[in-house]
Design a binder for these strands. Structure first.
Length: 425
RNA sequence: GCUGGGAUAGCGAAGUGGUCAAACGCAUCUGACUGUAAAUCAGACGGCUCACGCCUUCGUAGGUUCGAGUCCUACUCCCAGCA
C-alpha cells in the first residue's frame, strides 16, 4: 500500500500527485516552510495556511534538545503543541551531524565549544554536543525514529550521514554505506513500532470502544530512505538500489544542498528522477531557490524544503518575479533577489512586486480619473496590503518584528504559489 | 562671577608623551545566506590610491619636546556645584 498517488506527469516533466498523511491529503509537488524548533520563524499557523502552506518541516535534533520530545508528547504531540493541524515532516538530525561536525562550520565561531567538533560518528550512531549547553548526547537510528514517533509527525527521516560537498570519494563512500546500514535499522525499528501501534488500535476497537475514524489513527506515518552518495553516480545508484529494496514509503535525496561552491547537482537530481520508484514520493532535501525548485520538479522531484525564503526574509531580501505581463523574461531565471535594506529602497513607494498577489503586496485596485487602473491610494483601508518597499525597509531598519513578518509572508507566498503553479501548468 | 569637570571621526565613547587615522558600540554602505548553532555573519566606514604607501585630523591659536589626541598658556563653548 502506498500513500502517494501519481495523478499525471506534465509535459514539463513535473509529476502531479497527492500524498496521504495522517493529517490529510496534500497535493504534490509541494514546498515545506522550515520550522526548525516547532515554529516557522515569525509565522503563526493560520498565516502559513493563508499563504498556501499545507505541510511544514520541523527538526528532530532541535526539538529533542529543547523542549524534549517527551514533553511534547505529554502535551499532545507536536501538532497540538504548536497548533498546526496539517502534516509535519521532521528532519532526522542528519544534517546537524554535518553542520555541527568538524571542518564544516564555515561561519562564525562555535558558541559553546570553541573550534572543537561537536560530533563524533561511530557505527552505532552519532555522539554530539548540544549547541545549546555543550552537554553530550547520543543518537542512534532507532532513537531518532523513537523521537519522531513521540513527536507524532507524519513523515519521518531516518538518521543519515550527510557529508560535505567537498568531501573525498572515500569519505562520501563511507558516509553512504553507513547511511544505508542506519536506514535498515531505522526501518526495522519503525515497522515494529508501527505494528504495535496498529494492533493496539485494532484491539481497542474490538473491545466495544467506538471505531476510530480519525485519519490520525488509520493512516500511518511514513518513513523515507535518504539517498546519499555525493555527486558520484555509482554511489548514488548503489545507495538508491539498496534503499529501494528495503521498500521505504518514500525517498529523499540528501547531500545536495550543502557546500554550494561544488554544486553541479543537476546531473544527480536527474539521475534520481530516473531511478527512484515512480509510485513513491521523492523529496529533494534542502533545495533551494525558486528556480532550483522549478528545475528539480521537472526532473521528477515532488517535495522541497529550504530555509532560504524565511532566512533571507529575516535578512531583508525578497524574491521578485522577472516577468513582463505573462511571459517570463528568461525561463531558467524567473526570480531575482532584492535586498530591501539597500539604500535605493529607502524612499521606494512601490510594493515589493507589483505582479505579486500575496497579502503584503496585494492592494485593492481602482481606476483614477483618467481611467488608469492602479493600486488603491486608500492605505488606511483595513486588510489591504500594499505595503511599500520604503515602509518595509523602515521596519527592517528599526528592527520591528512586523518587518521580517512581512518579508517572510511575501517570500513564502512566492514559493508556495510557485509550486501551486507547477501543479497546474 | 567663582570653583571644579569636559570638548576625540555621523552619534556615543576609549585613549593622558612615541606601537594613534585613533579601541568599542550605534548609525551608515556593501556582500553572503540552499534537510536553520542564522531577526545572523563578514567586510568597509577622514582623504587620495588597485596596492605598497602618502596626505590631513582629536574645540581654536600658540608653545614645550627628537616626537603631542596625550604636557603648558591663552581663547571659545558646554556641564556641575557655589554665589
Amino acid at each position: 500500500m502506498t500513500q502517494f498517488r501519481l495523478i499525471k506527469k506534465l509535459e514539463s516533466g513535473v509529476r502531479v500527485g497527492e500524498l496521504e498523511t495522517p493529517h490529510g491529503i496534500i497535493p504534490t509537488p509541494f514546498f515545506m516552510p522550515v520550522g526548525t524548533v516547532g515554529s516557522v520563524k515569525g509565522m503563526l499557523p493560520n498565516e502559513l495556511k493563508s499563504v498556501g502552506a499545507n505541510i511544514i518541516l520541523s527538526n528532530t535534533y532541535h526539538l529533542y534538545l529543547r523542549p524534549g520530545e517527551q514533553m511534547i508528547k505529554s502535551l499532545g504531540g507536536l501538532h497540538d503543541f504548536m497548533r498546526w493541524n496539517g502534516p509535519i515532516l521532521t528532519d532526522s538530525g542528519g544534517y546537524q551531524v554535518f553542520s555541527l561536525g568538524s571542518g564544516h562550520n564555515s561561519r562564525g565561531k562555535n558558541k559553546i565549544n570553541g573550534d572543537k567538533s561537536l560530533v563524533k560518528i561511530t557505527e552505532d550512531g552519532v555522539e554530539f554536543k548540544s549547541h545549546l549547553d555543550g552537554s553530550k548526547h547520543f543518537f542512534t537510528p532507532e532513537k531518532v525514529i523513537q523521537i519522531q514517533l513521540d513527536l507524532g509527525v507524519d513523515i519521518l527521516m531516518p538518521l543519515d550521514v550527510c557529508p560535505s560537498g567537498k568531501a573525498s570519494y572515500n569519505e562520501i563512500k563511507h558516509a553512504t554505506e553507513l547511511t544505508i546500514r542506519w536506514a535498515e535499522r531505522a526501518k526495522r525499528y519503525f515497522e515494529s513500532r508501527i505494528k504495535n501501534q496498529e494492533s493496539r488500535i485494532m484491539h481497542e476497537s474490538q473491545n466495544g470502544k467506538p471505531m476510530i475514524n480519525d485519519s490520525k489513527f488509520t493512516i500511518r506515518p511514513m518513513l523515507h530512505g535518504i539517498v546519499q552518495g555525493g555527486m558520484d553516480e555509482g554511489l548514488r545508484r548503489d545507495c538508491a538500489k539498496k534503499l529501494i529494496e528495503m521498500d521505504f514509503d518514500g525517498y529523499s535525496v540528501g547531500g545536495l544542498a550543502v557546500d554550494l561552491e561544488t554544486r553541479n547537482m543537476w546531473q544527480t537530481v536527474k539521475l534520481m528522477g530516473e531511478i527512484l520508484p515512480e509510485n513513491k514520493q521523492r523529496y529533494l532535501m534542502g533545495v533551494g531557490t525558486p528556480d532550483d525548485i522549478i528545475q528539480a520538479a521537472r526532473l521528477g522531484m515532488d517535495m522541497f524544503d529550504c530555509v532560504l525564503p524565511t532566512r533571507l526574509a529575516r535578512h531583508g531580501s525578497v524574491y521578485v518575479q522577472k516577468r513582463t505581463k505573462n511571459n517570463w523574461t528568461k525561463d531558467e531565471e524567473r526570480y531575482a533577489l532584492v535586498n530591501l535594506l539597500n539604500s535605493g529602497f529607502r524612499e521606494d513607494p512601490d510594493v515589493i512586486d507589483s505582479d505579486c498577489s500575496c497579502p503584503v503586496c496585494r492592494a485593492p485596485m481602482e481606476s483614477n480619473s483618467r481611467g488608469e487602473i492602479g493600486r488603491s491610494s486608500d492605505r488606511a483601508e483595513a486588510d489591504n496590503g500594499g505595503f511599500s518597499r520604503a515602509y518595509i525597509a523602515h521596519l527592517l531598519r528599526s528592527n520591528e518584528i512586523s518587518g521580517i513578518r512581512l518579508t517572510t509572508i511575501h517570500n513564502l507566498y512566492v514559493y508556495l504559489s510557485l509550486v501551486k503553479e507547477l501543479r497546474q501548468t
